[in-house]
Design a protein around this nucleic acid. Structure first.
Lengths: 218, 218
DNA sequence: ATTAATTTTTAAGTAAGCTTAAATATTATA
DNA sequence: TATAATATTTAAGCTTACTTAAAAATTAAT
């Protein structure tokens, strides 16, 4: 199966975590940077391969086979992220970009070797869960968006849900990283801003950030 | 530049080490498993990109730009081989197959990180030299094919020049590996066979093997 | 030095993965 | 609920990297 196909099923899989109804060709096209027409074409092609169910004008739904393929790609991506993060001094964004390519050129054997080396980690450096060899994934997610955190409470960062370089640069400069602790010192509800204390810093974040930083109550 | 292009210039580069005159489309086609016609087409295309010089019915010659590209791919391939060999318990052949894919999806930055981690090695686990970041490569090669070794002398294995799984399996079973020591106990000149002592084994090898095992006199 | 064998090249065609433009259906809005 | 805005689909076309078949050139062999 080609890189294009792997990326397509992966995009559907990830989109479904947010909004299953919105998994239509146009949405996937936008994420992949291709035209709507190309996405519709691909959807038909993948339906013929039993990777997804396609009905005109309806949301795309991965079959079991398609889901398995997506999970396998996601597994390789996140294993590479965890591995590169451990081995080399590289930014989370650079690591993400390498993983985006390597994920398609990695045998199941190598993935297993990497997983073994790392002690079969359950999460990558963004806090995203790593599916195991059989496509099983940790879904018990008690974490909440920072936007919904309660003033005065202490939390641990559990996920940084972004692919954006600037976001990661900002995080790196402000101690915002997976498993660090923070205190929500103020929620500016009407302005949709959140003030946090992290390390020795106090930072006010707007909604763009507080919706993609996930935390667990301590 | 595409994977197909990278593999094409790499094939020319590697072929030139053996026989520059024989670097014609048909030869490259055979190595890449594509038709002669496809190789001719590609040669014209790459000439237009200033990666090689092409004249009808003549041998293909990489330009400086083409050579640089080839060296960069070879560098990544051999760095991956050295890295995977160090990190994971995998056969040389499996490692080669992974490297064959990963080499095209590795940024210069990551290659540099791998090289750094390994202490900028000059050779991969087959004994092949690893070009540095600037495309400089250790060429001082005093080694000779085992076929040309002198009876009674002791040698160190310096290169295993093959991509073939069966060859590597055989090597693994017989202590034939990079940097191991052997004694040439007999050269059967008329039969083109060579008898060696290695570890506690005595093995008779035919020309197929003695032409691709390179050794340095101790 | 011819002829035969082999290679290289040209020509025509294919599949994958895209594109843009236009037609059609859906969704949102007034 | 009719209409406007938006999204999806269809259609036609492009590029890359191949293929096979036939023509042309080179190389090898007698």
């Amino acid at each position: 199966m080609s890189v294009a196909i792997e990326n397509f099923v992966k995009a559907i899989y990830k989109n479904d975590n947010h909004d299953t109804k919105d998994t239509k060709p146009g949405n996937i096209a936008k994420k992949l940077g291709i035209s709507n027409a190309a996405a519709t074409d691909m959807a038909k092609k993948l339906a013929a391969k039993d990777l997804l169910n396609y009905e005109k004008y309806q949301a795309l739904q991965l079959t079991e086979k398609g889901t398995k393929m997506a999970l396998n790609v996601v597994r390789k991506h996140r294993l590479w992220e965890a591995f590169l993060f451990k081995m080399f001094d590289m930014s989370l964004h650079d690591i993400h970009r390498e993983a985006e390519l390597l994920e398609h050129q990695t045998s199941d054997l190598l993935a297993q070797k990497i997983s073994e080396y790392l002690g079969h980690p359950k999460f990558d450096p963004h806090g995203d869960p790593i599916p195991n060899e059989d496509g099983e994934i940790t879904t018990e997610d008690t974490s909440i968006a920072l936007a919904d955190a309660v003033e005065g409470k202490t939390y641990t960062i559990s996920r940084l849900m972004s692919d954006d370089k600037e976001f990661f640069d900002f995080c790196a400069q402000n101690d915002i990283k997976y498993r660090n602790t923070l205190i929500v010192s103020k929620q500016f509800v009407s302005n949709k801003m959140t003030q946090i204390s992290i390390g020795s810093n106090t930072i006010v974040l707007n909604e763009d950030f507080t919706k993609i930083i996930y935390v667990d109550e301590n």
